[in-house]
Amino acid sequence: MLGRHYLTKIVRGLLTIWIIVTFTFIALNLSGDPVDALVGDQASPEVIAHYREKFGLDRPLWQQYLAYLGSIAQGDFGLSLSDQQPAVSLIAAALPHTLRLGLLAFSVGLLLGIGLGIVAALNRNRPIDRFVMSFAVLGFSLPNFFLGILLILLFSLHWRLLPSSGDATIWHLILPAVTLGTHFAGTFARFTRSAMLEVLNKQYVVAARAKGVPRPRRVLWHALPNAAIPIITIIGLKLGDLVAGSIIVETVFAVPGVGRLLVNAVTSRDFALVQAILIMVSITMILANLAVDVIYTLIDPRMRAARAES
C-alpha cells in the first residue's frame, strides 16, 4: 500500500532525528563545559555552580539526556545559553533570511544548471559543450568563500555596483545568491548533461523523431522527464548543501541567517541552540527526501506501480 510505504519512511525519519539528537548531545558534552564559555574563566565557583544548576548541568548525564529528549518531544528546545531566549524563536527570526537567500540561490542553480546541462548534452563534444562543462567544473570546485570574496572585490570594491553585506534589498541578495547558485549550477549541469545524454540515445527518442516530433518537443517532452529521476535525486541531496553552503555564504556576506546563527552557537557552545538548529536541518533533509520520493512517483508510473505493490 502507498500509505504504508510513506509510514515506513516517516518512522525511519523520526529514527534518524533521534540518532542525530543523541549524537549531538554526546559530541557537545565531550567538547567541554558550556558554562565555562558563558561566564569566562574569571568567574567564581559560586557563579559557575549557579548556572550549572540553572541549566540542569549538575545532574548526571543520563538524566540530562532523558530530560532533553522529553522536552524535545513536547516541542521545547530549551533556552539559548547566551541570551536566554527560547532557541526556537532565535531560529524563527533567522530562518526567513536563510530561506530567502537559499531559495533564490537554489532557483539560480536549478535554472542555470539544468538549462546549461541540456545545451551541453545537445552539443556533445562540440566547443559549446566543452565551454559549459568547464564552467560547471569551475562552479562546483571553487570554494564558496573564495568565489564570494572574489565577487565582493569585483562588484563591490572595484566597480562599486552592488552592496557586499546584509540582505536588506534584492540588490544585497544578488552576490550571495550568485555565489551559492554557481556552486549548485555546476553540479546540476553535470548531472543533467549525463542524464540527458543517456536518454537522448534511447529508442523512444529515435522513435519520436521517426514519427515527426520536432526537436524542442523531443527534448522537453520525451527526453527530459526520463532524465529527471537522477536529476531530482541530486537536487534532494543538494538541499543538504544548501545549509552547509549558507553557513559560509552568510558569514562572508554578513547575512543574519541560520547559518551564521549556527556558527555563533557553536563557538559559544550554546548547547540548546546548536541542538535545535541541527534538528531543524535534519527535519529539512528528511522532508526533502520525502518530497523527492513523492516526485518520483508523480513522474514515473513504474515507480507508482512498485510503491503500490510493496
Binding site: Q203, Y204, V206, A207, W221, H222, P225, D300, P301, R302
Partner: peptide
C-alpha cells in the same frame, strides 16, 4: 517496448 516512452 523500448520504442514507447515509459513516462507517457
Amino acid at each position: 517496448l523500448g520504442s514507447l516512452n515509459p513516462l507517457h
